[in-house]
Nucleic acid binder design. Structure first.
Lengths: 142, 142
DNA sequence: AATAAGTTTAGAATAGTTCTAAATCTTACT
DNA sequence: AGTAAGATTTAGAACTATTCTAAACTTATT
């Protein structure tokens, strides 16, 4: 089983760790991200979870996504002015945003590179996160 | 004279290169970015240029900023869901966003590092830009 | 001077997100 | 089991940043 396969227990644990409860809404939202890892927007997640839980509201989808981000289960990614997209990949990675198709790809980062990048920070700058976003196009040979 | 000091001729040239005209509005907007390089939002630019050109409209400020970005005179930067900020620094650099104060700092990148970062892209990914954003806090010793 | 093209403007419209307050669910305690 | 306290969800209103629209204005060209 991959380390981030859905697992209610594990999700409940992570939530409990922040003093939060697990709920059906949080489960379906998290599951939606894990089963199609295409960096959906809140609207897209809403559309997907409605098939499982037809009474869920868009506000709840926003709430759940925010909760998952707070619990370090999900990353929020922003491309320029576009809507926030959500990503359950917790391994260090960059994002490639294809400006022609709008699709997003995870780009794995070699373990040493993040350190090298953080080394450019002068003393007194204390970064707890680095976002790296490539913008461009992808070609057929991909 | 630093390479990006305001210079109407140079601005006109760059604009003309894209088939665009220089205008008083474009000049004051560009000047506003150059004279206080604190990554202002469109609203903040609007507030600043109104002292020079009281009749300018917010829509025009947005138009001018977009024009300057298109002509490669200015970079647009986005932090999470916040409003777009504008930066006249054309040298390769990352941004550090202090989440406590909201201020933004340019972080110079050593010449080789951008290349190293682009090297992580698998074949078929063709990036024309890389945005690197640090999030965290700055301490007194900065 | 007339026409065309580029630009600015005010205000309306839009998209994405957050807020609000009431309803519902869960948990802990009696 | 019954109830109070707290957490969560919900629908819809509100909000913010931005873009659109169409008219007015400016500048360049015939």
């Amino acid at each position: 089983m991959s380390s981030d396969t859905l697992n209610s227990e594990a999700l409940s644990q992570k939530l409990a760790h922040s003093g939060l409860r697990n709920t059906p809404q949080r489960e379906v939202v998290y599951k939606a991200l894990l089963t199609r890892r295409d960096h959906p927007t809140a609207d897209e997640v809403y559309a997907r979870v409605r098939t499982d839980l037809s009474t869920i509201s868009l506000a709840t989808v926003y709430n759940c996504l925010e909760t998952l981000v707070q619990c370090d289960l999900v990353r929020a990614v922003n491309f320029e002015r576009g809507p926030t997209r959500y990503c359950p990949n917790l391994a260090p990675h960059a994002h490639f945003h294809d400006e022609e198709t709008g699709s997003t790809f995870d780009i794995d980062l070699p373990p040493d590179l993040l350190g090298k990048i953080k080394d450019v920070l002068p003393p007194g700058y204390d970064a707890d996160a680095v976002d790296i976003i490539f913008r461009g196009k992808t070609t057929a040979t991909r």
